[in-house]
């Protein structure tokens, strides 16, 4: 019973990733796509956490932190790119 319910929640998380993927492909503007990619990252965090409970092992818990940091940094980089046209700004001496 326990495993079945956890499996259900895994399937629901996968469905929500699929919906976000649809938004990535179709999204009318670029910020839409970035937003959908960000939410895919959060859903993957949830999937890893549920997998940790299902497999009954705490070895994957580092992955949660890692994916969270990666999703945040990629979102920040993409937003900076949208706003200014460059990711890393150099200081100009003029």
């Amino acid at each position: 019973m326990f495993q079945t319910l956890l499996m259900t929640s895994l399937i629901m998380l996968t469905i929500s990733i699929a919906i976000a993927l649809y938004r990535v492909v179709k999204g009318p503007s670029l910020p839409d796509r970035i937003l959908a990619l960000d939410s895919i990252g959060y859903n993957i965090i949830g999937i890893v956490a549920v997998l940790c409970i299902m497999l009954d092992s705490s070895s994957y818990l580092e992955t949660i932190l890692l994916i969270g940091i990666l999703a945040f940094l990629s979102t920040v980089a993409l937003c900076k790119f949208l706003e200014r046209g460059v990711v890393i700004e150099r200081k100009r001496n003029d």
């Binding site: 326990f2 929640s9 929500s16 976000a20 649809y22 939410s39 549920v50």
Partner: peptide, 19 residues
Amino acid sequence: VVMVLAGTVLSLISSLGFL
């Protein structure tokens, strides 16, 4: 299980919001 299902439903709802 109740907390996991609640969280899953919330994230599914926000994905529906994307649509």
